[in-house]
Nucleic acid binder design. Structure first.
Lengths: 263, 263
DNA sequence: CGTGAACTTGATGTAGATCAAACCCCGTGG
DNA sequence: CCACGGGGTTTGATCTACATCAAGTTCACG
């Protein structure tokens, strides 16, 4: 099923793609944390790659307690925008996002794509203000983690502290690798690297590493890779002609991962 | 004095550039932390932009206690290399560094330049292994901060925890901005942005924002900006012809910051 | 089933890479 | 003290990967 295009309803698509055990449960910001019984990391498929990774069951429960709840974000809507005051981090529970940074000149650049289990918003910590927009690529659900509570819990739970630091550091490493891509690689290498990265992230999450649907447009991919949308399109066509993959709109089948890696 | 080229001894140059109150005091790795009386954040000119920022005097003393000591790194030597096990973070006390990431294909890319007060090594946290080389651009001194001790202290001291998180987040934001530069900007804009960024960092540290010496080669700058060294050189010459700055080898005078910003 | 957005493909233009040569320091050793 | 050598830098000539412009096609959604 996964990897087939043409779903009528992106919300149900997101739900079956990521198999959320419960339906999204949006919560008012003012709702007390104690009432938040539905959102439980223990039940979440993504707990082993998310904030809860390597926590004992007791500690996961503590994390649940500081989690404010879920928030649904419809396709195209913004989870936050640059300039918003920073209060919470977000963990993607279902769906996916892109983050967009805008220069003073008004030029936009996509700085990252985030899927289930990824954390968004860590750019906001340093100035207590978000520096990018986070936009849902499909109807999505995030866990809302108030930063001051997470901070306090990190002082209590060493494994949580360690995991949080690792997530911050992993983002630094990811961006450093992206800088390498943007600074040194040919268009073909950029596209190949991008596809392999998506593939690997799907594999980590238990989905097919070779057959998937791109949630973003060619323009989004181009922006992320520092090339034009035409170049993305041409490169995909070329890879298809060479038998490295099969494209059909946003659906992709990678037919030769090694050959892609050799680009 | 700062900004004048042609010093005979780079070590003395580094010392007077950053006005270290005491001479470097290298320490053996096994030396107990208690013996580390010489290295004191309280005396350090950079304490307000470093790990100690916004700490009370008592807390700064605690930070001193976990600091393992100083390490001197001669020009061209490596503070750590990709693949080294991650044990410590480093704060630049005097001098400057570049960090270099190397792709599987062996291509090198400079991911950052670091001067006094900056922290290096945060990429190592996530996999407990450094992912880049850190190379001294001149004879330099760093404070060595064992990560497990810092972690423990961050559980004790909320302001230190906050500052540390801010430094991690600031690195994420810096890299996101660099990705924007690499993905969207013309060569001229890249060079102008680079110069203005160096200028601002000098200003923050109390040095001249308009007159300084570049510690890195044209090739280093090119690698960082994703252009060739020839393009860097040509762009500087062009800016000079237009009266935006005066170049003389590695010495630079910015004559029109606004015009540079308008690029 | 109609319509606009997303995508593909082709033709042409250009910023910056690459190749090449000379120059300028700056440290070294005679 | 000066000649020497080599890394760093500048500048010029040429080349090319990719951007840009343009037109048509397909697709997804209302």
């Amino acid at each position: 099923m996964y990897g087939m295009p043409g779903k009528a309803n992106p919300a149900s698509d997101a739900a079956d793609t990521f198999a959320s055990p419960e339906p999204p449960r949006p919560v008012a910001a003012s709702r007390p944390a104690a009432a938040n019984a539905g959102a439980r990391c223990a039940n979440c498929m993504m707990r082993h790659i998310c904030m809860a990774a390597s926590l004992e069951a007791d500690d996961v429960e503590q994390l649940d307690r500081v989690m404010q709840g879920w928030r649904t974000v419809r396709q195209g809507e913004k989870l936050f925008r640059a300039g918003d005051p920073f209060r919470s981090l977000y963990a993607v529970r279902a769906g996916s996002f892109k983050t967009v940074v805008t220069s003073e000149r008004g030029k936009e650049h996509i700085s990252g794509f985030y899927m289930a289990g990824d954390a968004i918003g860590m750019d906001g910590i340093c100035e207590e203000t978000h520096t990018s927009d986070a936009i849902a690529l499909e109807d999505s659900v995030v866990c809302v983690i108030p930063y001051h509570l997470l901070e306090a819990l990190c002082r209590e739970l060493k494994p949580l502290q360690r995991q949080f630091h690792k997530m911050l550091s992993a983002e630094i490493v990811r961006e450093a690798n992206q800088m390498m891509l943007l600074g040194n690689m040919s268009a073909e290498q950029r596209v190949a690297t991008f596809l392999l990265s998506i593939s690997a992230r799907h594999r980590e999450r238990g989905y097919s590493a070779t057959s998937f649907v791109l949630r973003m447009t060619r323009e989004d991919i181009g922006s992320y890779l520092g090339v034009t949308l035409e170049t993305v399109s041409r490169t995909l066509s070329k890879f298809q002609q060479e038998g490295l993959l099969a494209v059909q709109g946003k659906s992709l089948d990678l037919l030769n991962l090694d050959a892609l890696d050799a680009r």
